[in-house]
C-alpha cells in the first residue's frame, strides 16, 4: 500500500448550473504510484479540470463531490475536515493552475509570494524561508535577483515556472498540473516539461498532468488516462495506448494530431461534437460519434472500465486491436 500515492475510487463530482446539475466527473477510478507521471487527456468539458480540483478539495462553491473516495496515502480526502485538508494542501500535494497570470498576486513580489507560502505551513525564520525560495527559483532556472520582481515584470513562461517553484517549495509528494503549458509557446512548454521531469527524478514526487494535448502526454507520461464526457474511457501505459488504442475515442484522439516526423497520411479526427453533460446520450457516451458503434452501444448503462489485458483498462466492450476478452457493461471499473 505504501507504494500507492493516490487512489481515486468511483468518484462522482459535478457542479450546479442554472439548467441543472452537471456531473462532470462520473464514476472515475484510478490509482497513482509514488513517483509516477500520470497524464490525463481529454477535450474541453470532459471533466478533467473538475477532477483535479476535486482531488485538491478546491472545488468552487457551486461544485461538490457526490460520492466516491479520494485516498491520499491511505487517508480519504472526501470526508476530511477542511482544516486537515488545509494542512495537507501545499505541503503534501500542490497544484499548478492553467493561468499563472491570474494565480500570482500582482501587488506582491515573487519573493514575498514564495516565502508567504512557506510561512503559511512551516515555522521557519525569514532568512530560511528566503533561502528556500532562492533554492526553488534556481531549480526552475530563475535567477535569485528575480525575488524582488513583480509578476508583470516576468514573461509568461517565467511566471509559470514561478508557479511551479511555489508548488514545489514545500516538497510535496503529489503535484497536479492543470494545463500548465497550454498558454505558452512550444519552446517554453518544452523547457518547462524538461524541468518538471528533472525535478521529479530528483525529488521523487508523483505528477498528474492534465491537458488536451495528447501528442505531448504520450511522450512524457508513464501512464495515460483518457477522459470523455466525464468518464475515464481508457487507462494504461502511455506507449501501449499510443501504439494500440483499445477504445475508439482514444484512437480518434490519436488520429487528431498530425505527425511531425512519421509518414504523412490523411487523418480524420472525430466527427460530431462532445455531448451535453446535462443530458448525456444513453448507453456509451461516445457511441453517437463512434465509427464502430453498434446498435447495442446506444442502449442501457454507460460501460465502465474493465481490464483489457496487459494491465490496461478500457471502457469499450468491443475492444479494438484484436483482444475481445471483454468487459461487462454497467459495472464501474476498479484497479
Amino acid at each position: 500500500m505504501s507504494d500507492t500515492m493516490l487512489e481515486v475510487r468511483n468518484l462522482r463530482a459535478g457542479y450546479a448550473t442554472a439548467k441543472g446539475f452537471v456531473r462532470a466527473v462520473d464514476d472515475v477510478s484510478f490509482s497513482l504510484r509514488r513517483g509516477e507521471f500520470l497524464g490525463i487527456a481529454g477535450e474541453s468539458g470532459c471533466g478533467k479540470s473538475t477532477l483535479a480540483y476535486a482531488i485538491m478539495r478546491l472545488l468552487r462553491d457551486n461544485a461538490r463531490v457526490e460520492s466516491g473516495g479520494l485516498l491520499f496515502k491511505g487517508r480519504d480526502l472526501v470526508p476530511m475536515p477542511a482544516a486537515e485538508v488545509d494542512a495537507l494542501r501545499w505541503t503534501d500535494m500542490a497544484m499548478v493552475f492553467q493561468s499563472a497570470m491570474n494565480a500570482l498576486n500582482p501587488v506582491l513580489s515573487i519573493g514575498e509570494q514564495l516565502t508567504d507560502a512557506v510561512h503559511a505551513h512551516r515555522s521557519v525564520s525569514r532568512d530560511e524561508a528566503e533561502a528556500m525560495a532562492v533554492e526553488m527559483l534556481a531549480l526552475v532556472d530563475i535567477n535569485a535577483d528575480r525575488l524582488r520582481s513583480y509578476p508583470h515584470q516576468l514573461s509568461g513562461g517565467m511566471k509559470q515556472r514561478v508557479m511551479i517553484a511555489m508548488a514545489l517549495i514545500l516538497k510535496p509528494e503529489l503535484l497536479i498540473m492543470d494545463e500548465p503549458t497550454t498558454a505558452l509557446d512550444v519552446v517554453v512548454q518544452r523547457s518547462i516539461i524538461e524541468k518538471i521531469e528533472e525535478l521529479r527524478r530528483r525529488l521523487g514526487f508523483s505528477v498528474i498532468f492534465i491537458t488536451h494535448d495528447l501528442s505531448l502526454l504520450v511522450e512524457i507520461s508513464d501512464s495515460l488516462g483518457i477522459m470523455y464526457a466525464g468518464r475515464l474511457v481508457e487507462y494504461g501505459p502511455a506507449a501501449a495506448l499510443f501504439n494500440e488504442p483499445r477504445h475508439p475515442y482514444t484512437e480518434g484522439l490519436m488520429n487528431s494530431f498530425p505527425s511531425l516526423t512519421g509518414p504523412l497520411r490523411r487523418m480524420d479526427g472525430i466527427e460530431g461534437r462532445t455531448p451535453d453533460l446535462l443530458s448525456p446520450p444513453p448507453g456509451c457516451r461516445y457511441a453517437p460519434r463512434c465509427r464502430y458503434a453498434r446498435p447495442a452501444c446506444s442502449e442501457g448503462g454507460c460501460p465502465g472500465l474493465a481490464p483489457s489485458g496487459e494491465g490496461r483498462l478500457s471502457a469499450c466492450p468491443y475492444p479494438m486491436g484484436g483482444r475481445a476478452d471483454g468487459g461487462v457493461a454497467g459495472e464501474g471499473g476498479r484497479l
Binding site: 477535450e43 488536451h212 495528447l214 487528431s256 494530431f257 487523418m267 480524420d268 479526427g269 472525430i270 462532445t274
Partner: peptide, 11 residues
Amino acid sequence: LDVSIRMGVMN
C-alpha cells in the same frame, strides 16, 4: 477548436 474536431476543419 477542440482537438477532436480540428482535423475535420483542416481536411
